[in-house]
Design a protein around this nucleic acid. Structure first.
Length: 468
RNA sequence: GUCCCCAUCGUCUAGUGGUUAGGACACUGCCCUUUCACGGCAGUAACCGGGGUUCAAGUCCCCGUGGGGACGCCA
């Protein structure tokens, strides 16, 4: 049978990092097995679902390049079908009207809590035959009272839950709209899902859902419950608890490759391997190998991975993702060196794409102020003379190439009888405004002759004024 | 409170009865070096506790402890 998986977020916020991992696992498993991966938007809660969230989720999926095989399914398009199934359950006697008020239910739960019991619906409307005047009833699923439900979970193993721990859950609200546990089951059956991969916060729902599968005479999919991701404080990462949206990682300069690589290694591994290409992920991943314990999100490792990818990805790929940051940081690159050359010169010292852009500004724009610490440390009384000597040497060059620039700098050192470490650092500050840049020959070559000479003139003036 | 899940360095993990408990991030030191990085080398650091089973337990079982989750007319 062809594998079918789905990612089923509810559009009540952005795509967060935990959701992204679940989506990745679903996607990988489908891709690995030659199956299909679908996206289903669970928007039955009309109070909280928004179009903006739908867009954000779609955007996140696209950024991560987790492509789905069919058009996304929206549950709000399927209300007729849910009503049909609810009616079927009513007709079969597997569902019933419940007229209890919210106050009544609250009181019941309070009482149970007081008695140190698990709050659960006690089934008081199970046998009611008369409607209650003026009350729009909800519909509850009649859960079996005896026996137990067994989940053969692909990541957790065998889980057994006694039916007496479960209660009769609401499948239709008093306004007639269906609720989560019903819609999931109906959709997964109709969409012929073979594998339900989701966060383990859903484990408690699974036995109820299995009972509904049984009531509907449907075949069970395989379940795989992946552990939650915890924040630095050990608490579950969620929308209301520090989980940031995946698009925020783009804003901070992460590559989608790095995010995906980080996510796959969070709870899964393949020996000692840390870096996985997309192809390797698909080839090596198996849902059954996912670690059953929750893991803590660690930004430093994500940073390291990001750096690895910035260092090694083809330059065109880097540039593709860099565009967004160039716009974001308002950098005009039309007047300066080739972006590819700049990227190649600087990629080894960038932790993020945002850093990369920020640290390349001097190739394209002039500046009038120097980094305070860099100037303080490297501009001395002798600087104007050194800069002047450098300027003379560089100006006389017939060609502006790495070799000639390098030779000019060394020749200056010799003329002045100074070591390179007295000449190089101030030169760097003069030309870039900061204390860090690629090696001087590369930097000067890219900055260009004209700009270099102009900046040396500027540095001479600056230092003359300072030490006058 | 009740039920469910989980437990190896600070973090991510390898490990499937016999290992000097391995790797990665982070951290520290050294080397490389015109800066910052990169890179290389070295180092600190872990089997939650207690009982079993066994010749042998990080590995299997039980009980604690700790952490997480669920207990909605949310998903």
């Amino acid at each position: 049978m062809t594998v079918k998986t789905r990612f089923a977020p509810s559009p009540t916020g952005y795509l967060h990092i935990g959701g992204a991992r679940t989506a990745l696992y679903c996607w990988l498993y489908a891709r690995k097995t030659g199956g299909n991966f679908l996206l289903r938007i669970e928007d039955t809660d009309r109070e909280r679902s928004t179009q903006a969230s739908v867009d954000a989720i779609l955007e996140g999926m696209e950024w991560l390049q987790l492509d789905y095989d069919e058009e996304p399914v929206f549950q709000t398009d399927r209300f007729d079908r849910y009503a049909e199934v609810i009616q079927q359950l009513m007709d079969q006697g597997d569902a019933y009207y419940c007229y209890c008020s919210r106050e009544e239910l609250d009181e019941m739960r309070d009482q149970q809590r007081k008695n140190k019991q698990k709050p659960r619906y006690d089934g008081r409307c199970r046998h009611r035959s008369e409607p209650r005047e003026g009350v729009d009833p909800v519909i509850r699923f009649r859960n079996p009272t005896d026996g137990e439900v067994v989940i053969d979970d692909l990541v957790k193993g065998k889980i057994v839950i006694a039916n007496k721990e479960l209660d009769d859950l609401i499948i239709a609200r008093s306004d007639g709209t269906p609720t989560y546990n019903l819609t999931v089951v109906v959709d997964d059956i109709d969409m012929q899902m073979t594998h339900v991969i989701r966060g383990d916060d859903h484990i408690n729902n699974t036995p109820r859902q299995i009972n509904m599968y049984k009531a509907l005479g449907a075949e069970l999919p395989k379940f795989a419950h992946v552990p939650m991701i915890l924040g630095d404080d050990g608490k579950r990462l969620s929308k209301r608890h520090g989980a940031v949206g995946v698009m925020q990682y783009r804003e901070e300069g992460y590559l989608p490759q790095a995010v995906l690589n980080y996510l796959i290694r969070l709870g899964w591994s393949h020996g000692d391997q840390e870096i996985f290409s997309r192809e390797e992920m698909i080839a090596l991943f198996d849902i059954g190998d996912v670690h059953s314990a929750p893991s803590t999100f660690n930004t430093e490792k994500l940073q390291w991975l990001n750096q690895q990818y910035i260092k090694t990805l083809p330059v065109e790929e880097i540039i593709k993702h860099l565009q967004w940051h160039i716009e974001d940081q308002n950098l005009d690159i039309s007047n300066g060196p080739e972006l590819a050359d700049v990227v190649n010169a600087s990629r080894e010292r960038a932790k993020s794409l945002a850093d990369l852009v920020a640290s390349c500004r001097y190739y394209y724009e002039d500046f009038t102020e120097y980094d305070l610490n860099a100037a303080k440390k490297n501009f001395k009384t002798a600087t104007p003379d050194i800069m002047q000597a450098l300027r003379d040497q560089l100006e006389s060059l017939s060609e502006w190439e790495l070799d000639s620039i390098d030779t000019a700098i060394k020749a200056t050192c010799k003329t002045l009888d100074l070591k390179l470490n007295k000449v190089g650092p101030p030169l760097r500050v003069a030309v870039t405004g900061s204390a860090m840049s690629p090696s001087l020959d590369v930097t000067l070559k890219l900055v260009g002759r004209e700009r270099t000479l102009k900046r040396l003139t500027q540095a001479i003036a600056f230092n003359r004024a300072k030490y006058a």
